[in-house]
Structures are given as C-alpha cells and as structure tokens.
Simulated scan of single mutants.
Amino acid sequence: MAKLELDEAATAQRYLEREWIPNRFDLRDAWLPVAHGHEVDESVARRQVQSEPCYLWRVKGRLRASKRRPDGPVRANIRDDGSHDYPVLERYGYVWVWYGDPEHASDTLVPDVPYLPYDGGLPPYMHGTVRFDCCSALLIENLLDLTHADFLHADVLGDERADEDRIEVQYTSETVTMIRTCKNKTVAPIMRWFGGVRSRFQDVRAVIHVHVRSSVALAYGRYTPGVDLKLFHPCVSESRDRCRLNFAINSTSAPVPLRFLMPKTPYIVGPQDNVMVGPQSGRYAEAAGRRDLFSRFDGAGARYRFLLQQIAKRQDAGDFSYAADANPGRDVRALLGMPA
C-alpha cells in the first residue's frame, strides 16, 4: 500500500481543481450493505440506491432483492427470468446487494470488516440508522478527516489538545486510509464518564479505512488507557442529496454502562455532522471557480476524489474490473491496528 506524501496530495488537488464534477459518480460493480440483516424478513422492505428502488425480503429464510416490488404473495422470483433481481448475500449482520452487472458478482469482493461477527449476531442495540442531507461522497469526505472530531464532537471524543499529533495516509486504487496517532490527547469524555478512565490524557491511534466503490468506511480507534472503538459506517447513497448510514458499533468488550451507551453516540454525532454537511450539499453539487485550499489533513479527501474520478473514467470506458492492488476482501486487521 502506497503512502500519500504532501507533494502527491498537492498534485492530486491541482488535478481536481480542473476536473472535479461532484455527484456525477455512480460507480458500479460493488457490494452495497443496504440494510441490517435483522430488518429483513418475509415482509417486503424498501430501500433506495442512487434514486432506484431496492426491495428486500426472505423466502423460507433465503434473501431476495429486486428493483421491482413483488405483486401478490411474495415469490422466489419477481419474473421467471429474474431480470430485475439483484445478487444478494448476508455477511457481518448486513444484507449486501450487488450494484452492477450480475455476471460480475463475486462474494470475494465484499469488503473485510474484521471486528464484526462474520455471520452476524451482534445485539440489535449495537445497530442503528442515521440519515444525512447530502450524497455519500460528501459524507465520506467528512469521515476521512479524523481531526474534525476534535471540534465538532469534542463533547464525546475529546478536544484537540495533544502533545503529538501525526497524520498518515495510505491508499490503493480502490481504498483510502487515514491514520491519526496522538500522544497525551485529552481523554474522551464518554470514557471518563462511563468507561472508568480516570486519567486526564490518553494515547490514541484512530484509523478510517474507506472502500471507494462501495462507499463504506471502517473506523477503528485504540485508546490507551480506555477501550477500542469499532465502528462500521456504510454510506449508501439514496439520491444526489440524501444518504443512509446503517451503522454498527461492536461494543461487546466495553465495560457496562459504556457497552450500552457507545451505540447511542451516532445519534449525537450524526446530527452534528449533518449540521455541517447538509448546508454544504448544494455547493458540493456545483463546480466552483475558486481554488480549494487544503492542508496535510485534507490529503485523504483529495486522494478520495482522485480515485473516484479514476474509477469513473475507467467505467465510462467500459472497464468495471478491479485492479491487482484492489482486493476488498483482504485482511485489514494489521492496517486498523487491531490486537493480534
């Protein structure tokens, strides 16, 4: 995996100032986690992907997904030829649909989420849904700047005070990863109040790992002293200005009451994020003539935009393949900093 140096970030940024056309990206041939598994039963549930309907249900426990709602009793197929069906599977407690050419669907292309049980089974209270008034790309850019939490979510995750704050960005042709390492950072209030952490400061290694084509983000934080934060943020684009985040937080190793309170935090930080990204949505959708100022903290976002463009251009030319370095299912435990 390559490192993103500052001069490379500047090159990517200059390219984007000329070429960036927000919201035109409708990347295909990707698995999208459109619903929590426990939300889908034999009744028909409706979701939306890129302004297109996606209907989900089960037939004798078997998942089905289609662009068309079944008429009358739910059947195994919408039509005899199944031409409106999505390939569908269940993993990590999510229902994943293949958005693209069904002949290209392969379960090896499902992103690896190593801190969620492979076959699901997290308690329902560790799952939830937050909606945002923006497209998925804008929400992903927000998530990719880990430093924004110091100012927007300080009441939950702590402020910007730290003796040392280092940023590293890594990427492949399909993923972007921002790693932030802090020494003696202000302790996260939620851990001080509910996690039994008595220290005023803690060391933090926070990682956000984004799969560009699927618009899913893995967030993993190691807090010492403290507990690991394990969040899964699938940002499903419902339309050009609406995004659905069906999150999961694995807090099984946290002490009580933090174990039960951590899954509630997205309902605090989500609206805080939406206050910021919602008003930006209109400007994000329009090409701007002025230069976009950036710092080293924006390197991950610049690379993300660059990769969006590169994948979109290849797909416009009819190439929907994954490059050799793009293995969504590869083991990312070491990258995230998970204990061996």
Results as ranks from 00 to 15, higher is better:
D159A: 03
R205H: 09
R333A: 12
D165Q: 10
A30F: 07
R24G: 12
I140K: 10
I208Y: 12
Q315H: 08
I249R: 11
R290S: 08
V275K: 14
D203I: 03
L116V: 13
R69P: 02
L138M: 05
V256Q: 10
E5S: 14
D155C: 00
E90L: 02
E5T: 15
V187H: 05
F194M: 01
S199M: 01
V34W: 07
V212W: 09
L307M: 09
E164F: 03
G289A: 01
V130D: 05
L63D: 10
L27Y: 12
Y92A: 02
A137Q: 15
L138S: 01
V227R: 04
R333G: 06
L109P: 09
N142T: 15
D145C: 08
T129L: 04
D107H: 05
A340D: 15
S239P: 02
D26L: 01
P328A: 00
N327V: 13
Q202S: 14
Y125A: 05
V187L: 04
G82H: 08
V88K: 04
E174G: 15
V59S: 10
D85R: 11
L336K: 15
A9F: 11
V227C: 11
F201P: 00
N184V: 00
L56D: 08
T129K: 15
P234T: 12
S136Y: 12
S51Q: 14
I249P: 07
Q50M: 02
D80H: 13
G301H: 05
P271W: 11
R283I: 11
F201N: 06
V236P: 07
R62D: 03
L109M: 13
G82S: 07
T11R: 13
S215K: 15
F306V: 03
D81P: 02
H148R: 12
Y223W: 15
D85W: 05
A30V: 14
K60D: 15
R198V: 08
D325Q: 06
A154W: 12
G226T: 10
N23P: 04
L245H: 15
D292Y: 09
Y220H: 09
Y223C: 03
A30K: 13
V169A: 00
D292P: 00
D71E: 13
F320L: 07
